[in-house]
């Protein structure tokens, strides 16, 4: 693995290995000294062409816990219309010998362009590109689901995948890089994915994806899901006739208190995930967001662990099953 651009490129073995590393990285966060020396002396650049406080903070935390030198480069705006081109930015980073570039960009494919153009040699980590991919989000979701399942079974996560896990992804799939990356990763890990959305928010061509598609959220929930992942509805979609009103959307595709009660009544351990930030009262009710089933804060915690794992794998070599622990001990 040279770059992390998309979960579609990950094999099952690579994904499981990343998740295993992430679980161990997670332990670092509970130590008194939350730091490993793994990336000491390495420079990681967070190149953000799009505002995203949550993702940037998560990456920055991960980088600092690995002792990397962190440079935040906020380059909002598309390259051609406003100022410096992606190429010039990339060559600038190359010239200062950046060891890795974490890129967030409003245009789908920009990280791949960066990785394949020859403008820069450093590994590229996609922190979300347009409506294409958000691989670290999918990895943190998989990590959260894996922990959830292990907890229910009182088992260990190490080496496990998500075989047979039923996951419903609900909402604006069309514009969601989170949904796309989850579809590929969950499929690779053996989960059974159902996409639930109004037809206007499903891409033409979705039938080629390894998923079931359902318009009726109640029917999808009634079939039994181990987890439901609610996607954020962007405010601007409401003015573009994707659905008649926010109220109707919430009624038909929101995780309402009624639907939460139905999940409770059905028993089972259905977990609730949301990539954040949440629109409470729209795609998810406060009752659902704050319920015991909600793993939203676990997702945030795991985000740091997964990003540490990705940086670790890309910058220190593919496999290092005991690396972080050992180095952690040396650090003390």
């Amino acid at each position: 693995m040279r770059h992390l651009l998309d979960t579609r490129d990950l094999s099952r073995a690579e994904a499981v290995s990343l998740l295993d590393t992430a679980d161990r990285m997670g332990e670092v966060g509970h130590r008194e000294v939350k730091k490993l020396p793994a990336l000491r002396g390495r420079t990681v650049v967070n190149l953000f062409f799009e505002d995203s406080t949550r993702t940037r903070i998560s990456f920055e935390t991960a980088e600092k816990r690995l002792s990397a030198d962190v440079i935040n480069f906020a380059a909002k705006g598309s390259s051609v219309s406003k100022g410096e081109s992606l190429k010039d930015t990339a060559q600038t980073l190359e010239a200062i010998n950046a060891d890795a570039v974490v890129i967030r960009h409003p245009g789908s494919g920009a990280p791949q362009r960066l990785a394949t153009s020859g403008w820069i040699d450093a590994p590229v980590i996609n922190a979300g590109d347009g409506t294409h991919a958000h691989p670290t989000q999918a990895l943190l979701d998989a990590m959260t689901l894996r922990q959830h399942r292990a907890r229910l079974a009182s088992a260990d996560t190490a080496g496990t995948d998500l075989a047979g896990l039923r996951v419903a992804i609900v909402g604006d799939v069309l514009h969601s890089r989170v949904a796309r990356s989850n579809v590929w990763l969950l499929h690779t890990l053996g989960a059974e994915v159902t996409l639930v959305a109004p037809p206007t928010l499903l891409p033409v061509g979705v039938d080629a994806w390894p998923v079931a598609v359902e318009y009726d959220l109640d029917a999808a929930l009634a079939r039994g899901q181990d987890a439901v992942m609610m996607l954020r509805i962007q405010r601007e979609r409401m003015n573009a006739a994707f659905f008649p009103s926010a109220e109707e959307y919430a009624r038909l595709w929101g995780l309402t208190p009624e639907r939460l009660r139905a999940l409770e009544a059905a028993g089972g351990g259905t977990a609730i995930l949301h990539p954040g930030p949440m629109n409470r009262g729209l795609e998810i009710s406060s009752e659902a967001a704050d319920s015991d089933r909600s793993l939203v804060l676990d997702q945030v915690t795991n985000g740091v662990s997964v990003r540490m794992a990705v940086l670790y794998h890309l910058l220190t070599g593919p496999q290092a099953p005991h690396g972080p622990d050992e180095e952690g001990h040396h650090d003390r």
């Binding site: 579609r8 294409h132 890089r177 891409p203 033409v204 039938d207 080629a208």
Partner: peptide, 14 residues
Amino acid sequence: EGAVSADLGLTGWP
């Protein structure tokens, strides 16, 4: 607009 645009997350031209 089709299977490839769905994968790539690029706005489709139907």
